[in-house]
Amino acid sequence: MARLEFGAAIDAAVAEAMARDPRVIVLGEDVHTLRAPLFARFGPRRVLSAPISEAAFVGAAVGAAMGGLRPIAELMLVDFVGSCLDSLLNQASKVEGFTHGDWKVPLVVRATCGGGYGDGGQHEQALWGLLAGIPGLSVVVPSTPADAHGLMTAALRHDGPVIFLEHKLLSRSWLEFLGAGGRKTVSFDVPPDGVEGEVLAGEEVPLGVAAIRRHGDGLTIVSLAVGVHRAIAAAEILAREGIDCDVLDLRSVRPLDRVAVVASVARTGRLLVVDEDYREFGLSGELAAAVLEAGLSPRFARVCVDGTIPYARHLEDLALPSVARIAEAARELARVSPDLPGHG
């Protein structure tokens, strides 16, 4: 057990896998700087600095995975997936299906995501819903150092392609790299429990298993990444008002832990989704479908991102899911009796 920062917890999982398995390699833009310790320890043949050619190096990572390696391709910011979408949409995700499970693509794409430091609409998107919409990909989005370590460990043992998203507000090194740049004149609303925590080396967090972060019978809040910490903060305020919330941390978007969501909502009769991704055609709608398909008809609301994330910090704060928005939406849901037997 060690106390680690979020990013260091991921790097520790990567280092462990690289030390154990010579097939694990890291490639991507600037990795000699961003992963300097891995570069110094494993050398330039296993930590490969790539040109700004996402289509080439993510595409090559797919081929390398099919050819027997276990690559981690680093995309810097998930927003840059636009430049290499084909390798995920039409290549990595399809091989297992085409070969009826005979040929797998053990690839991890590691990228940062999320906003809260004023970088604007091309550098702060979540996009996990877009990526999870592609069958054949797994998409994981941890909210704590322990999960970050455990999910990276699981991703590196998994035989299919995994998109591993690292929220910049949780990752001190990324926030320093992109947000602060050595300045003491800026501050960010960073959730302390997400930034640093106890990590059990080598312990796997299985893909597709949600975690219950808080127990309550009045309302289910489902979220992931920074949203989990905002939801917990809101739940503490709501508890003082007599509204007790279940807070569920999905951890994986695909596979989605429908069972955990349905079990909680069956108990509470109310579902509030807190999702930093876009509101429409994404995760929040999928969760609504999941409970409907399970035969439940809960009260439903969502706190998401509605459009292009504005650059100005005060506008960005209004656009991203905040404690205030979550609490307000929860109060609104709690005001109405759920239409379920045994409730109301």
């Binding site: 310790p37 570069f39 320890r41 050398g43 296993r46």
Partner: peptide, 24 residues
Amino acid sequence: DVTSAALSRTGGGLGDRARSVVRL
């Protein structure tokens, strides 16, 4: 961080580690 990583018990060969450090 780079120094302690380059001196890790496990990792790449000495030549690989040296090449990385020189490049940095």
